[in-house]
C-alpha cells in the first residue's frame, strides 16, 4: 500500500519539477520581451525627436541601408504592438501555469499525507 503511494508520489513530484521548469522558461521569455519593449520604446522616442532633415539608416547584416523616417517609425510602432501582444500572451500562459502548479502542490501535499499515514499503518502492523 505504502509502496504504491510512494511510486505515485514520485511520479507526481517529477511532473511538478517539469512544470516548474516550464514556468521558469516562460518567465525568462517574458523578461526578454520586457527588455525588447524598453529598447524599442527608447528608439521610438528618439525617432520622434527627428525631422525630415535627418537621414535614417537601418543596419541589415553588415550594411547600412537608407530608410524613410516615416517607414522606420511605422516599423517600430508595429514592433511595439507585436511585443505588447506577446507579453499579454505570456502573461496569460504564466497565470494558467501558476494555477496548475498551485493545484499540483495541493495534490502533492495530500499524497504525502496519505503516504505518511500508510507508512504509519505499516509500522503499526509490524
Amino acid at each position: 500500500m505504502a509502496e504504491a503511494i510512494q511510486k505515485k508520489l514520485q511520479a507526481e513530484v517529477e511532473k511538478y519539477t517539469l512544470m516548474q521548469k516550464d514556468v521558469s522558461k516562460s518567465m525568462a521569455a517574458r523578461q526578454k520581451l520586457e527588455t525588447q519593449l524598453t529598447d524599442n520604446n527608447i528608439v521610438k522616442e528618439e525617432l520622434g525627436l527627428l525631422n525630415s532633415t535627418n537621414t535614417v539608416y537601418k543596419l541589415i547584416g553588415p550594411v547600412l541601408v537608407k530608410q524613410d523616417l516615416d517607414e522606420a517609425k511605422a516599423t517600430v510602432s508595429k514592433r511595439l504592438e507585436y511585443i505588447n501582444g506577446e507579453i499579454q500572451r505570456y502573461e496569460a500562459i504564466l497565470k494558467d501555469m501558476e494555477k496548475k502548479s498551485e493545484q499540483h502542490r495541493e495534490l502533492l501535499s495530500s499524497l504525502q499525507q496519505e503516504y505518511q499515514k500508510a507508512q504509519g499503518l505499516a509500522v503499526g502492523k509490524v
Partner: peptide
C-alpha cells in the same frame, strides 16, 4: 555624424544634435 539609436537604427545628426543625444 552617424549615431546608433538602438535596435539597428542609425541616424545622421548634426554634431550639436548628437551631443544633445
Amino acid at each position: 555624424c552617424l549615431v546608433d539609436v538602438g535596435t539597428g537604427y542609425y541616424v545622421e545628426k548634426s554634431v550639436e544634435d548628437s551631443k544633445a543625444f
